[in-house]
């Protein structure tokens, strides 16, 4: 059984006018089927407004499905009694690092989650230590979050989720507001968590480079899952990706263009080394 299972999941945003009459209905999610295995690194790609953030909010019980079901670790998110279990099982990291840090000191923020779920004091300290170590932020533990860089803040936010010992971490465009260095920091941290601690990772992004090392990629458009497969399979379909207004990594694009020019290359080249190996 997978850790996150969605069956025919649909969600509608209902816009109402001042009198409460329905003005328009936007179907943000439509017939989503998803099966995420424990320990997987899943990437969800999509253009703005493709419904990927809406999907992420379902996995954490912030939004509830209009139709269909979503099971997180076997628990139905539509059932309100499960909500706290689900939020503990599936931790969530948001886009803006400033708006999700609650504590005025790094270690206090990391301790916020465990405090909420009623972990005893000594255990909180152990968890905070471990979480800070796993994101390599131990030496900043006494710092104010305001003095950290974007990448560091985002790592603190990840530590805050890790300290709750979730089985699954959902990252909703965690790198959208970061510079390239911060982006690399965050992605490496997430990768390490996935490999060393076996945490299931669901990374929602529109940066193709971050997707390369994932186990499976889903591409969303207009609230539907339109493509799925390994990064290699996905990126070998350069033209189809372009249709969904997504860019492939530069190396892949170069290889694709070379192919079109008649140079004999395999599909779905993802790294510079791979391309060098094929060409030379």
């Amino acid at each position: 059984m997978g850790i996150i299972e969605a069956a025919k999941l649909a969600f509608e945003y209902i816009r109402r006018d001042e009198d409460g009459n329905v003005e328009s209905i936007v179907r943000a999610l439509d017939g989503i089927d998803l099966d995420v295995k424990k320990g997987d690194f899943i990437a969800i790609l999509g253009h703005n407004g493709s419904g990927k953030s809406t999907l992420a909010k379902h996995m954490n019980g912030i939004l509830f499905p209009t139709e269909g079901t979503l099971l997180v670790d076997g628990k139905d998110t539509a059932d309100e009694r499960n909500i706290w279990d689900i939020r503990q099982t599936a931790g969530m990291v948001f886009q803006n690092p400033d708006n999700q840090i609650i504590g005025t000191m790094v270690e206090e923020d990391v301790g916020f989650g465990p405090e909420n779920i009623g972990v005893p004091t000594e255990e909180i300290w152990k968890r905070v230590d471990a979480a800070l170590k796993s994101v390599d932020m131990v030496k900043y533990r006494k710092h104010s979050p305001n003095k950290l860089s974007g990448g560091q803040k985002q790592r603190v936010a990840i530590a805050g989720v890790v300290a709750m010992r979730p089985k699954c971490i959902i990252l909703d465009e965690p790198t959208a507001m970061l510079d390239p260095i911060g982006r690399r920091e965050v992605i490496e941290t997430v990768k390490e968590l996935n490999e060393k601690e076996g945490v299931t990772v669901i990374l929602i992004t529109h940066y193709m480079e971050e997707v390369i090392s994932s186990d499976k990629v889903y591409v969303m458009d207009g609230g539907r899952i339109v493509m799925q497969g390994t990064p290699k399979e996905i990126f070998s379909k350069v033209d189809e990706l372009k249709k969904y207004r997504l860019d492939v990594p530069q190396v892949t694009l170069l290889a694709h263009e070379l192919q079109l020019e008649g140079i004999d290359l395999p599909d779905g080249i993802l790294t510079i080394d791979e391309l060098v190996g094929e060409l030379c």
């Binding site: 954490n60 912030i62 706290w84 939020r87 503990q88 931790g91 969530m92 948001f94 803006n96 400033d98 708006n99 999700q100 609650i102 270690e107 206090e108 301790g111 916020f112 989650g113 465990p114 405090e115 909420n116 779920i117 009623g118 972990v119 005893p120 004091t121 909180i124 300290w125 905070v128 805050g160 989720v161 709750m164």
Partner: peptide, 26 residues
């Protein structure tokens, strides 16, 4: 907007008021 985001982030981290909450630094 920030308040909205923060409220969501707090809920996502299981914040549900003072009841049943433990303290990191009692």
């Amino acid at each position: 907007r920030r308040a909205n985001d923060l409220a969501m982030a707090m809920e996502a981290r299981c914040y549900r008021g003072g009841e049943g909450r433990t303290k990191m630094k009692p």
